[in-house]
Design a protein around this nucleic acid. Sequence first.
DNA 1: ATTGAAACGGCCCCACC
DNA 2: GGTGGGGCCGTTTCAAT
Lengths: 139, 139
Amino acid sequence: MVDTVDLKIIESLKVNSRTSFVEIGKQVGLSPSSVRERVQKLEDTEVIKGYNVQLNNRKLGFGLEVFIMFKLFSGKLKTFCEQLEQFPEICEVFRITGTHNIFMKVILVDQLHLQQFIDRLLLYGEPTTHLILSDLKNL
Amino acid sequence: MVDTVDLKIIESLKVNSRTSFVEIGKQVGLSPSSVRERVQKLEDTEVIKGYNVQLNNRKLGFGLEVFIMFKLFSGKLKTFCEQLEQFPEICEVFRITGTHNIFMKVILVDQLHLQQFIDRLLLYGEPTTHLILSDLKNL
DNA sequence: ATTGAAACGGCCCCACC
DNA sequence: GGTGGGGCCGTTTCAAT
């Protein structure tokens, strides 16, 4: 269903998702039309879910990035999920195994913002916060 | 340095980083040239760090996604960082606060693969593994 | 910093293999 | 599933403002 050429195309898009089909075609030895067709199929079958931009949040005025391990109060999962849109600070949320059954990545302006955010979270469970010090993949 | 028009452009790229400058121009009320110039500047100043593709790892044969909270042995940070390329399974790594001072997201084929991966990690520290059950942002 | 115009290159559809 | 071509659309550069 997904062959090695598809994987090469995906590798190329991983490096830069704005790469043109012509350029990808050169890399994988295929015509632009074929690349387009394959990418289309990968999108249709939801192997490719979307294309994102990677931002420097600090330079956008968000000086704090934190991970929160969250222990939801029992029976609160549904209401928490429904309220997720009320927390624009949460950029990723996952249900995970462990006593802290929710994991989230949160982007915040500063410590005050973090405090206010945690206060709002306390309605739904018990948070444990870990500040992100540095991204080891990008220096 | 980054004004509201830049923020609108960034919002558009967040939704889909392959959106054309013409389309973004329509959304923000600017000519394609101007959009391009602004995006160029955002890239040059590293506000925009890159463009990524969002994949369905399960459909690519990676059935397990886990978070690992990692307690590095003292003095092992440097060697661990140098060995990172030897762990293609690690797709994100951060230094964080807390007794588990490293956080990583890892993509794996199956439980056997996880076991082998953890065995290799044990040279550098003590891992605590959390399976990802579901992404609450996307269903 | 923004623009329009022009040249260029990429995208897309379709007919064909 | 892959290709090639023609028309269209997007991108890039640049001179002018």
